[in-house]
Design a protein around this nucleic acid. Sequence first.
DNA 1: CCGTCGCGTCAGGGTTGCGTCAAGGACGGC
DNA 2: GCCGTCCTTGACGCAACCCTGACGCGACGG
Lengths: 226, 226
Amino acid sequence: MTRVLVVDDEPQIVRALVINLKARAYEVDSAPDGATALRLAADRHPDVVVLDLGLPDMDGVDVIRGLRGWSRVPILVLSARHSSDEKVQALDAGADDYVTKPFGMDELLARLRAAVRRAEPTGGGEDDLVETDGFTVDLAAKKVNRGGKDVRLTPTEWHLLEVLVHNAGRLVSQKQLLQEVWGPSYGTETNYLRVYMAQLRRKLEADPSHPRHFITEPGMGYRFEK
Amino acid sequence: MTRVLVVDDEPQIVRALVINLKARAYEVDSAPDGATALRLAADRHPDVVVLDLGLPDMDGVDVIRGLRGWSRVPILVLSARHSSDEKVQALDAGADDYVTKPFGMDELLARLRAAVRRAEPTGGGEDDLVETDGFTVDLAAKKVNRGGKDVRLTPTEWHLLEVLVHNAGRLVSQKQLLQEVWGPSYGTETNYLRVYMAQLRRKLEADPSHPRHFITEPGMGYRFEK
DNA sequence: CCGTCGCGTCAGGGTTGCGTCAAGGACGGC
DNA sequence: GCCGTCCTTGACGCAACCCTGACGCGACGG
């Protein structure tokens, strides 16, 4: 199910959006200000964010920057400001779309669908697989196959694997891993990484004590190698 | 360079777009109708398409479908129709954004940037390699390859190498190296440099006692030469 | 010729970081 | 209310890394 985070300080707008979204089988969280929005985004990892720029506690553009610091979630900006300058600023800060109030609900929902569709790596029949000699990762189906059998991963394990595979061959810093998997307020809890890397290796490596695909770069981060 | 395909049957709009895009270092193709657009898209593989819905030969939505049949290139729709229904149709057919005429050039360009940015795979920059006759440095992946095998570097070694490669060909003073690698409170501990330069040379130079890439400038600093 | 200075090399020791295991606690399903 | 799964947290051993001091060498100048 697609999860949406609605950020707006006007209750009637939030209510209208929530009703319409839930009627279309979206899962919805809502936040009345920027601070709550950033916290919820970190906690719940929405698939798309609908963000009003006129918030009581902080500038909407700063919310965009705050999100973009660690996440690539699609952001659909909602604003009463029609000025071209406002739009350019928001879009260049990392927003994906900009809708001016008053807006048509049909249009907004269509733009939302477009944003979500775009973010899904493969919309059609094709899966994009990442294969190693020991196992195969299907990013689209969210499945891992090893020796003909599917491997069960917990949500956190999968999320970690996703980030690593997405950056295959590249070093991913501990901070980046922590922020992408656990949220932007994390960055030093390297023990989490140690525990979960061990889990992944136990489930996926042929010889977990001598990993060949999940490489540790001491003091820097981890690297996934095919 | 980013390649844009502009599809519109009104010459003055095409001209305005082409001028503005070329001034911003985009590479631009243009098509006056849907058939030409589909052909050009297939031939030239643009990074983004700007598409007017009101074309002489076919419905704009069909052009979107034609593109989406084989490509995930971002499509930015341009249209004189303000009706919500038109927008929903275009977006659901696979368009990424919808701008109504008359449009502000600044806004359009911002939306274009957003569309292109989104389409970029991950961090943005692919791998930028620095090659010498003896080894290759991949700054993005944080990898060094020598003779087909990856060389393991410690964090401090990496940091030092990074600063030197970044200033390839230039002399870097000891003070600058110390401050960039060890922090601003360092500046006189040249023995650190001696030790770590030796490590780098031992791991990367063909003949560590006669370095050809990591050059010492006595009393001043060090220099990295390809 | 000798002293000084800067650089390269080496080896030891303190410290940090990593892997592992296990226990406690939150959450959801039955 | 019970049970299983998953996430968090702490403790411990071990390996790797970073710092440090000592020594030798060559260049330079007195």
